[in-house]
């Protein structure tokens, strides 16, 4: 499960934040299932200092709606189902087997 937060207006995010960016109401913490689908991906050839070169990034939409940018070590396709997991406190994704 992935910790995030949810607002009554429907906004969901994987960050833990006190108030909703859309409506300003208090958000409540919520755990989201760690499965989702690939919205997009890219291989960044010129990442900032201190990151892997090249750097593989993906935008994932978790099943219950929140989206996140994470790392990947896999070849991805848009629409593919993936598992999002923590590796040394950083999110990564890999295709569901």
């Amino acid at each position: 499960m992935i910790n995030g937060s949810e607002c009554r207006c429907g906004f969901r995010t994987i960050s833990i934040r006190p108030s909703c960016p859309i409506c300003g109401k208090m958000m409540v913490q919520k755990e989201f299932p760690d499965e989702g689908r690939v919205l997009s991906y890219t291989r960044l050839q010129v990442p900032p200092e201190g990151f892997n070169v090249p750097l593989d990034l993906a935008m994932i939409e978790l099943q219950e709606g929140p989206k996140l940018v994470c790392w990947t070590e896999s070849e991805l396709e848009i629409g593919q189902m993936v598992e999002v997991y923590l590796d040394q406190n950083m999110f990564k994704c890999k295709p569901l087997s």
Binding site: L44, L57, M59, V69
Partner: peptide, 13 residues
């Protein structure tokens, strides 16, 4: 924090 730059986010879009 994931190393996303403007070109990287633009590439995802």
């Amino acid at each position: 924090m994931y190393g996303a730059t403007m070109p990287a986010l633009a590439a995802l879009i």
